[in-house]
Amino acid sequence: MSEDVARGRLLRAMVHPGRGQVVVAVLLAVLGAAAVTQVRIAGSDDDYAGLRQADLIQALNGLQAASRRTEQDIADLEATRDSLKDSNDKTAAALNQAQTQLTTMGILAGTLAAHGPGLRITVTVPDSHLSVNLLLDGIEEMRDAGAEAIEFNDSVRVVAQTSFEAATGGIDVDGRVLKSPFTIDVIGDPDSLTTAMKFPGGFVDDVALDEGHVSIKQSQDVEVNVLRKVVPPKYAEPGQPD
């Protein structure tokens, strides 16, 4: 029953508004305006505008703690990065050094082709009759003058183990019999090498005494392309480094 009474009251108020409703309307208008304004403020992008001092201090403290943690993280990560970079640099340097050493050793041992300034020496002797001692002396002179790679007749690379032996009809170099004309490609400083060959009583003079002829041609790009196989030492073992 009270349901009908209440609804009747509501209906009557809607249809026949009284004097009191004007006051109610004014207050409701104030409330509506305030509510809308508050919604606008709360929804505005400045989250900190309506906060109290204590809240702001708390927020600030939180941000400072987060900032400290983040800075710590940054420092850690930078340290990690630096150590990684450092080890990377060290590895690169070691690799570089190893590469350089490999090249040097390869040229010395004859496992790498080489080219550079040097001489092309052609020794012509009648009947390929050239004294091994004379040839060895000549090679020693070249090495003394800084020869870095030596090649005979485009077929034999001269390295530390190379052997020279007199053979019938020529010279046996590392088991291969070479005949005149002997072509020797040498890489090194062309002027020093030329001097080493031509000084009085040197290789050129000695060969001339044996009725041979030596022609020396300087070149800025002598190629030494013959390679040697590396045979691992069977008896020699590396000693303790000093």
Binding site: A29, G32, V36, R40
Partner: peptide, 27 residues
């Protein structure tokens, strides 16, 4: 009826005038 109109009027005013609330009264 008048009360409902008053409420709507207030909401409309708040929406259109966008009144500024003094910073001291905001909380």
């Amino acid at each position: 009826m008048i009360a409902v109109i008053g409420l709507l009027l207030g909401v409309g005013l708040g929406l259109f005038l966008k009144p500024d609330v003094p910073i001291g009264l905001e909380p």
